[in-house]
Write a protein that binds this DNA or RNA. Structure first.
Lengths: 236, 236
DNA sequence: TTGGCAAAAATCGTATGCAATCTTTTTTGG
DNA sequence: CCAAAAAAGATTGCATACGATTTTTGCCAA
């Protein structure tokens, strides 16, 4: 089981079908099974999940609030294709929020949490060792789940939701602009953060997290390329 | 309090109608024309704004994402009634985010922005001078607008949206738990922040903002009272 | 009066239909 | 043969309909 399953199961279990569809689509987007720019028509989503357009539409609306889907009036919904500027804003937001979350988590972490972190790290390591695009996607997801696990420990539901959005969008950004070299490095940084958490040094945890975010962003290629206008025009 | 106190303008010009309704309802909630716990039935909202339940429902869904409305399955939507714990989380989030926003804004602020801030401060001052509940509501709103104006200068659309949500929820919290004494004090702090912005000292701006948030929260009465279970049971 | 139960009313969740808008294909004029 | 106009097709925006669930009402007995 992975983290997001844990986080959302309580919601989607007895709640709306729209929420279940949203979770399903979000996983697909974060996993890159749905490429940026892919059209998500209400009818198609509806038939795929055996619901009416009404329910499919609600799910797409939720994803659009989270920034994972962009909707255009009378045209439909598309998997988001974040610009380099958006990518920068995502990471600027994370730099602001996540060190604070790490500090808060450090002050509330329990031995059981550390065990969960170790398991999470093991899973990450497994995917890094594997080859192939399937493992690559699982690796991105597992890496995001690490940050979500930390956020869930901070004891602040609002910040946790913000982080869910930011992590999901980060996955999109990394899939689009990542230069792929950093995986093992990121993993070792995660390991370091868990170690600092265990030692209870909240200042260190916060600093490590900040550096980690910087490293992730530094691995991106955020130079302006072929012009976003062209990308847009080609509906990518 | 009743929804029908609501005034609505017929301009659904180029935007989505659901969005216009959401904005209208949000203003009403933030202004406290709609009290926490008030039921917002889809049918009633729909007839009030001359739209079908479909559109009204979409608007309510948006507000529920923002945390201003709580929806219960098969029961309906209600204006949120944040608990003291939620109130603490709102302010913890603001303490994390807003000093950073202030720093970013300080580095991008222009002379024209300063003029806009002065105008905003003047408006605040006017409402503080006035008496009566109408002025009190306008005062809360104007105070929130100050923070939103600052957020808009930070140049980060994601953080700006987070702040919009946090400021709106703060208004609810202040309306519920505020002890009311702090208005003039908050105004003077706003003035101080603008002054620091003008001087370009981003460290000072950040520190003033942090203190300001602390003062706002300190003015709240967040002791656990008559038991949130009772409040919930009474649907307040 | 109070408590409990069943019918009625209200409200929500969802599917479906129609008009408006956008996209693609076909037709027409040069 | 190509460009522009027109028609056909697809998709969304919105309203409405109907079953399901909840809440209220009315009634009777304790």
């Amino acid at each position: 089981m992975n983290i997001t399953d844990q986080i959302y199961s309580a919601d989607s279990a007895n709640q709306d079908r729209a929420q279940a569809i949203r979770d399903n689509l979000r996983d697909a987007i974060v996993d890159r099974r749905l490429a940026p720019g892919t059209k998500l028509s209400e009818g198609e989503v509806g038939t795929l999940f055996n619901v009416s357009r009404t329910v499919a539409r609600a799910a797409l609306q939720m994803l659009s609030f989270e920034g994972l889907v962009r909707t255009e009036r009378n045209r439909g919904a598309f998997v988001a294709n974040p610009s380099t500027e958006e990518a920068r804003q995502v990471f600027a937001s994370r730099r602001l929020i996540e060190p604070g979350i790490a500090t808060a988590a450090c002050e509330r972490v329990t031995a059981a949490d550390i065990v969960a972190f170790r398991a999470q790290l093991d899973e990450e390591g497994r995917f890094i060792a594997e080859r192939g695009p399937r493992a690559r996607r699982s690796e991105i997801k597992a890496s995001g789940d690490f940050h979500l696990l930390l956020a869930s420990l901070a004891g602040n539901a609002i910040l946790q939701r913000f982080m869910e959005e930011l992590v999901a969008r980060s996955s999109l950004v990394i899939a689009l602009y990542g230069r792929s070299g950093v995986s093992a490095c990121g993993h070792s940084e995660h390991t370091g953060i868990v170690g600092a958490l265990e030692s209870g040094d909240s200042g260190l945890v916060s600093r490590l997290m900040l550096h980690h975010i910087d490293h992730i962003e530094a691995d991106l290629d955020l130079r302006v390329r072929a012009g976003p206008a062209l990308r847009e025009a080609l509906n990518f």
